[in-house]
């Protein structure tokens, strides 16, 4: 399991090696780690195994082709992979267009500021820790909200909880995760 700062730093390096040197060995390691997770995400979202396998391969191929777009000062590799997988899910499973916010006028720097990259990695660390210590009910809800093709009203129907309760619990959990990620003690 990755989790240490050193290992996550390494994923950033892997993407740089794909971008700069079309490094297949770096890709193979990323694939080994992320492809099964992406497949799990897609299956939890309602894809059958064949489709999830196919889409997970496409997500990983996209990672290769878009390696130059990855900005380690803005997101971890895991977060970036999550957004690519999420876009594939909207496209393949929901068969919708996904409106994306306007890009910021600047793209990734050729030589990203190491301090910023480290800051993002520390945030990922703290976030993983916060997720692990979330009360079970909140954690299950957060997971259902991200993984699993359920709208909040569908989660309400499934759990028998009022929609307002679902929303306020989720809001509380996200608030806590975001604050711990930023290292803000409250």
């Amino acid at each position: 399991m990755p989790g240490s700062v050193a290992e996550q730093a390494d994923w950033t390096g892997h993407v740089a090696r794909i971008r700069d040197a079309a490094d297949q060995a770096a890709f193979a390691e990323l694939f080994l780690h992320f492809a099964p997770r992406v497949k799990a995400f897609l299956m939890r979202s309602g894809a059958n195994e064949t489709l999830a396998e196919e889409c997970a391969q496409e997500v990983m191929a996209t990672l290769w082709h878009k390696a130059h777009m990855f900005d380690p000062t803005r997101a971890s590799v895991a977060t970036w992979v999550f957004t690519i997988a999420r876009n594939r899910k909207v496209d393949m499973l929901r068969k919708q267009r996904r409106p994306e916010p306007e890009d910021l006028p600047w793209g990734p720097e050729p030589e990203p500021e190491q301090a910023e990259v480290m800051a993002r990695q520390q945030e990922s660390e703290r976030l993983a820790g916060a997720l692990a210590t979330l009360p079970e009910k909140q954690r299950a809800l957060v997971e259902a909200a991200y993984f699993g093709d359920l709208s909040h009203s569908e989660i309400a129907a499934t759990t028998g909880l009022p929609l307002g309760t679902i929303k306020s619990r989720l809001r509380l959990a996200l608030d806590r995760l975001r604050h711990e990620m930023k290292g803000v003690t409250r």
Binding site: A28, F34, R37, T79, T83, E123, A128, V142
Partner: peptide
């Protein structure tokens, strides 16, 4: 930040093994 939570859950999820030859296919 909210997308980063998605990344953290992706790290944490129980993985589904990929099929044989999937890396080569990719």
């Amino acid at each position: 930040e909210i997308e980063a939570v998605g990344g953290a859950i992706l790290e944490d999820v129980e993985a589904e093994p990929m099929g044989a030859g999937s890396l080569e296919a990719t």
